[in-house]
């Protein structure tokens, strides 16, 4: 049980290009672009925190782009996806509007939560994103209830609960695993294990570094995967989504990954009280974007030149979206009291 992660925790491993044989190249290309979009969006947000334009706390997902992009490919807009404090990737993985995310981080009315939530409270039902909240583990019971509603509806919709390794230390999460299992609810628990809770390494917080042991304890089928390998994520997601849509009960995916920035804000090589520069540089070699890109180049699906052209276009578009968000209006003062109750 202690060894479920194996070499996945060793950053010297899993640096090579990934296996893309047999996967649809259109999907791979599309998802490569989206992973790049997420990274650039996060970088733009980070830069604007440094300059003081963005004030709200932002927890950046750079390095963790692959999981949500891979899983979202198998979801539909009537599914119910919930996240936590680090959920830009989950929202953008579902192809949430970049403009609305930018506007939300600026507290603007055009934001996905009308500027009332900021980075930590994202919402967009049109893509199946039911909400993200920054109280660690708090959206897990709510996602579990969304799965209960889906089970009652009986049309094959499912819930997805994104959480981190530290959320597994919360009672609310353990209760939810148990409830979902005993009630056979169609929910995928996706633990993005990035080894850190703020500044605390998992070895200082838990007796074992794999959270999949909680799935085992609650009788939930699980997969432990390289969370920086898009096609591994595809395979696990496909199986998990099928299992849930067929109403067999919950499924658990532990995706091993690493965040490149600090717990909150744009700083890279240090975190609150922790220096991890050497580790980080090694982990960066497990870059999910670079590994996918290299795989596509090796198979002659893509050239460096193509990639540069693609990213140039994306960069240009993102700059425009950011500028538009800067120009957007703030919410009217009346919104403060108008939406406390329906």
């Amino acid at each position: 049980m202690a060894n479920l992660l194996g070499d996945l925790v060793n950053p010297d491993k899993y640096q090579e290009p990934i296996n893309i044989s047999g996967f649809d190249t259109n999907h791979l290309m599309d998802d490569l672009k989206q992973m790049y979009v997420i990274r650039r969006v996060e970088e733009i947000i980070g830069d604007n925190i440094v300059t003081g334009v963005i004030k709200c706390p932002c927890h950046l997902g750079i390095g963790q782009e692959a999981t949500a992009v891979g899983l979202s490919r198998y979801l539909r807009s009537s599914d119910r996806v919930f996240g936590g404090h680090r959920s830009h990737t989950h929202y953008l993985g579902l192809r949430g509007s970049v403009y609305k995310l930018f506007a939300e981080t600026l507290g603007k009315l055009d934001g996905c939560s009308k500027g009332m939530g900021g980075s930590m409270h994202l919402y967009d039902p049109s893509i199946g994103f039911g909400g993200s909240v920054p109280i660690v583990g708090a959206s897990v019971p709510i996602a579990t209830g969304a799965a209960l509603a889906a089970k009652k509806d009986n049309v094959g919709d499912i819930a997805v609960s994104y959480l981190g390794d530290s959320a597994c230390e919360e009672g609310a999460v353990q209760e939810s695993f148990n409830l979902a299992s005993i009630m056979k609810l169609p929910i995928i628990f996706v633990v993005e294990n990035n080894l850190f809770a703020s500044h605390m390494h998992i070895d200082l917080r838990q007796p074992h570094n794999s959270t999949a042991r909680f799935a085992e304890a609650h009788g939930i089928p699980f997969k432990v995967i390289d969370g920086n390998n898009l096609t591994d994520i595809y395979e696990a997601s496909q199986e998990a989504v099928k299992y849930c849509r067929e109403n067999k009960g919950p499924y658990f995916i532990e995706a091993m990954t690493y965040r490149w920035r600090g717990h909150v804000g744009p700083r890279e090589d240090t975190d609150v009280g922790v220096k991890r520069k050497d580790d980080l540089n090694t982990w960066k070699k497990r870059d999910p974007i670079r590994r996918l890109k290299d795989s596509l180049i090796n198979k002659n699906v893509l050239s460096e030149n193509d990639f540069n052209e693609i990213t140039k276009l994306i960069d240009k578009n993102l700059v425009e979206q950011w500028q538009k968000a800067l120009d957007a209006p703030y919410p009217p003062k009346s919104l403060l009291t108008e939406i406390v109750y329906k």
Binding site: R80, F82, I142, G145, A146, K152, L179
Partner: peptide, 22 residues
Amino acid sequence: IDSPVSEVAVTGAAIGASLYGY
């Protein structure tokens, strides 16, 4: 629905179900 002894998960799950029409 009688539930496990899980006040947090049950209350949260009710909230979650209520967001989808219940």
